[in-house]
Design a protein around this nucleic acid. Structure first.
Lengths: 243, 243
DNA sequence: CCATGTCAGATTGTCGACAATCGACGATCG
DNA sequence: CGATCGTCGATTGTCGACAATCTGACATGG
């Protein structure tokens, strides 16, 4: 981490990491990472006692972490019965991408007049990172960098509620992309998949941007839905056991 | 969605009320109601020990209920320090109404082609309920019925994720409306405040509907922001100070 | 008089044990 | 042999007590 910069910069952003980690947050982060990494498959059971023992924490913080992941859409639970990693469904995919279209369009409308050189430079930088990850064949990095690329417009909007809504969608999206990666071995974005998207975002035609977002999301939804309908091409079984 | 039919329809939505109430849910409902009713003012401290004693439950379920209300934006907390009812801010109002504009526009776009007689009838029914509440001078009912009126399009969309997003906004909106009501004694919608909105929703011009939503939200945001900048016209003190 | 170190109270964070509930298996009866 | 009911294991829900941390006030020294 950056020990060097304690000169100027805004305090809040720098001092935030210093704050104490509660067990709830740590457990939530670890569990989320495990799910999104595919270590625990969609639909797999999550027993509180087993998890609390594995993480070496009591069930209190663990339960609160689970509640958080439920809010994020990564986990589902039924009272007194059981908790599971959220199962995949084609309806969800459609909802995720359609709502994402609306949100991302709104985000660009908010940002549109105030796009400056820094915004454009950052957009290019993140696109370069995505391309680098694709060229390197690093699927996990491809997913992360693509999410960061799309995340820029939400960050730049300065709209906290909008960013919250994006996070709610992003977690679910990650779940499906991770499952896709697990099943097919690769996330699959082409090297030039975001070229027209970037071009429109850098340009001055807002209507063209709207169209580009709609097309981009339509393609994404189609790809993901196609995978869901035929999830296991290689034939090797997916399991949710945790040993 | 199903307004009164228990014949076919999806089972989960109908069977939900039968399911057992966990303490967490009960506490969350009671606390939410208390906050939205104005019994606990924005910014007022919420101490876990006091609340758990008052509700006669242990701190476990109470904490989980608080977590839920935090997600809903009604409560804020800082680790090891304290928990409070969310304070009001003009930035929030702007974000709530701008995002709401985007969501409600999207919802109408989704519903537009499939509006049938039942949708139109239900829309008129809910508008009548709102007018009745306004005529009766019942502020609490006015808020509820107005929210239900706007909620129809989200329900009719059948888009669960969109409805979730609406709930996230609705809670925050209620918080501001309740505060407005507390300060001014009346929520303040005019009798005909939704006439043009309903007319557009019943008509066939989607572009006009988009415009109507934008105007409706702009007016709402202006009213709420104006109240926030001058919150206490009558001069009587609001509760919730730390004594 | 101001700055600084210390302490006590209050509040949240965490833990381990017990209770309530559910789903499935197996016994029993027709 | 099939259906129904009771029982049992598993899992989540709840509880009360203890620990960690923060905030503010107070004492102390410059």
């Amino acid at each position: 981490m950056a020990f060097s910069d304690l000169s100027s910069a805004d305090a809040t952003a720098v001092l935030e990491p210093v704050s104490r980690n509660t067990l709830r947050a740590q457990v939530a982060d670890r569990l989320r990472a495990a799910i999104l990494r595919g270590d625990i498959a969609p639909g797999a059971p999550l027993v509180e006692t087993a998890l609390s023992e594995r993480f070496d924490v009591s069930r209190g913080p663990l339960r609160e972490a689970l509640r958080q992941l439920i809010e994020e859409g990564l986990v589902v639970t039924v009272p007194y019965t059981g908790t599971h990693v959220a199962p995949l469904s084609v309806e969800d995919v459609h909802e995720i991408y359609s709502l994402r279209t609306a949100l991302e369009t709104f985000a660009f409308e908010q940002v549109w007049p105030s796009r400056d050189d820094r915004f454009r430079a950052e957009l290019n930088r993140r696109n370069a990172s995505l391309i680098a990850a694709i060229d390197a064949g690093d699927d996990h990095a491809s997913i992360q960098t693509e999410l960061e690329l799309h995340g820029l417009v939400y960050e730049a909007s300065g709209h906290r509620l909008l960013q919250r809504a994006w996070y709610a969608l992003r977690g679910r999206l990650q779940l499906y992309w991770a499952a896709h990666h697990l099943a097919h071995g690769r996330h699959g974005p082409r090297r030039d998949s975001h070229d027209s998207y970037i071009a429109a975002a850098l340009g001055d035609d807002l209507a063209a941007m709207r169209l580009e977002i709609a097309n981009h999301m339509r393609r994404g939804a189609e790809t993901t839905e196609r995978f869901l309908r035929r999830p296991n091409p290689s034939g090797k079984s997916k399991r949710g056991d945790k040993s």
